[in-house]
Design a protein around this nucleic acid. Structure first.
Length: 231
DNA sequence: GCGACAG
DNA sequence: ATCTTGTCGC
């Protein structure tokens, strides 16, 4: 059985170490990464992908993939324990060290303030931002129906992130501090990593790679020398 | 007790 | 997350 109580206790402890101020180490980053996880073989295998993009050109310059046996089922609130082992394995394979990482999922916008973006950021000690496609906790005012509309995400009287319409007629994104980034900078850097789609480019590429989407398979066909899947 | 619930 | 075609709307 899974000792969910102790995992939750661990989150409460680790959340104390999350840095919610800017400790970016750059004025403007040269490399921004996106990190995401997908699954194979009916969920037996967890596959993590990290895509490194140049900034401000936002071009994919490197990616790494790692597969590890799935260790935990999906339990709302405990997602990071399921995903971080594979993310760490992919991280260790990078030749470029990203200065900022967008992680698919929540940062501190989590019941115990330790979503996967914060947990991973702490483990590798790098600035991270949580970019989630749906809400885990907290509440917010309804957004005005246009791109750019934003509203604070609130939980227990405290702002834990932003709800942001990244694109017209699309569901909003939930942006939160991961680690070593302020609330303001989190939204700022995500806004500057957009290219006309609902998701910022680093996240879009990580998702395409982790889930082997057609867009990534086409890119691979055009750049065969960059195929490093499996190694 | 009831409902909500990242990926 | 993943399984999957067509379809509605801009």
């Amino acid at each position: 059985m899974i000792d969910t109580a102790s995992l939750r206790a661990e989150q409460v402890e680790k959340a104390k170490a999350v840095v919610k101020q800017d400790r970016l180490g750059f004025d403007e980053p040269k490399w921004i990464a996106g990190a995401d996880v997908g699954f194979e073989q009916d969920g037996k295998i967890t596959r993590a992908a990290i895509a490194v993009l140049s900034y401000p050109s936002l071009e994919l310059v490197e990616y790494r993939v790692a597969r590890v046996p799935t260790s935990l089922p999906y339990i709302p609130g405990l997602l990071s324990f399921r995903e971080y082992p594979a993310l760490l394995a992919a991280w260790e394979r990078l030749t470029i060290v990203p200065q900022l990482v967008f992680v698919d999922g929540q940062g501190i916008a989590h019941p115990r303030r330790l979503g996967v973006a914060s947990h991973f950021g702490l483990l590798v000690d790098v600035p991270t931002i949580g970019v989630a496609k749906s809400r885990l906790c907290g509440h917010h005012d309804e957004l005005e129906p246009f791109a750019g509309a934003v509203s604070p995400l609130i939980d227990k009287e405290e702002q834990i992130g932003w709800v942001w319409n990244s694109k017209a007629r699309c569901k909003p994104l939930y942006i939160s501090i991961g680690h070593r980034v302020s609330q303001e900078s989190a939204l700022f850097w995500v806004e500057r990593s957009m290219r006309g789609y609902r998701l910022p480019e680093p996240t879009r590429w990580a998702d395409a790679i982790a889930s082997r989407r057609p867009a990534f398979m086409r890119w691979l066909a055009a750049h065969p020398e960059k195929n490093v899947d499996e190694g």
